[in-house]
Computed example of a mutant assay.
Amino acid sequence: MENIEEIELVKLGKGLPAITLSFGATLAEACAICLEERGHSQGVEISIYGDFKATFKLYWQTITDQMLRCWNDREYTTEQAAYGIAFILVRNLTDFTVIERSRKGTGFDYWLGVEGEANELPFQNKVRLEVSGIREGDDRRVKSRVKQKVEQTKASDGTFPAYIVVVEFSKPLSFMVRK
């Protein structure tokens, strides 16, 4: 039997190079809301497909009534939760981490880089990250979203590769592709 790595989503609250402690904690809350709303229990397995293959067990903080009232916008909550899952997957499956938020209109959400690596040239050895979340959808919808996001990143194609991460919360699963 294979040993499946455990991920504590609350650790997002420790921050990342481009994610403050408070924003990381916010993403962890969104993840907890999406997973519990879909009826998942602590330790639910998330399967990763696409150019990466993996399975992780997810753990999150206890949901409160205040959190439910705060995260009442399902679309926004799903988007934020997808960011949280994507950031963890990137850190666990690649040598990269989130180093800077992208600006609107670029066709992607964040810049990835190697943590602690000081490059003399800005954005040398960097990767674009585009993320999308689906609260509940079948394989066809997930694959369609991946295709849509690959197309969206064409606006910034050129020197830098891109990772596209689509997170689906009802199974849960994620497609993670490199472009």
Rank of each mutant, 00 (worst) to 15 (best):
V142R: 09
E75L: 15
V44S: 11
T97V: 04
M67Q: 14
Q124T: 11
I7S: 01
Y59D: 06
C31P: 03
K11T: 14
L129R: 08
G84Q: 00
E5F: 05
A81T: 04
R141E: 13
E168R: 13
D109W: 00
P122C: 03
R145T: 14
S22F: 10
S41Q: 10
L12S: 02
I88C: 11
L93V: 02
F123C: 03
R38I: 05
G137C: 09
L35V: 09
D65K: 12
F23Q: 15
N3S: 13
D139R: 13
M67P: 05
T78M: 01
Y49A: 05
R140C: 07
E29D: 15
A162G: 10
I33R: 01
A118L: 12
E75I: 12
E29P: 04
E37S: 15
E75C: 10
K179H: 12
K57T: 06
E79Y: 07
G50E: 01
P17Q: 02
L16Q: 09
D157Q: 14
G158S: 05
A86W: 05
T106W: 07
T153I: 15
A18T: 01
D65S: 13
I48S: 07
M176Q: 07
G133N: 07
Y83D: 10
K171Q: 13
G113R: 00
F169P: 01
E5P: 07
I4F: 09
D139V: 10
G133E: 06
M67N: 10
K143M: 12
G24H: 02
G113M: 00
P122T: 03
A118S: 10
M1R: 11
D157I: 13
T97K: 00
L93G: 01
A54W: 02
D51T: 06
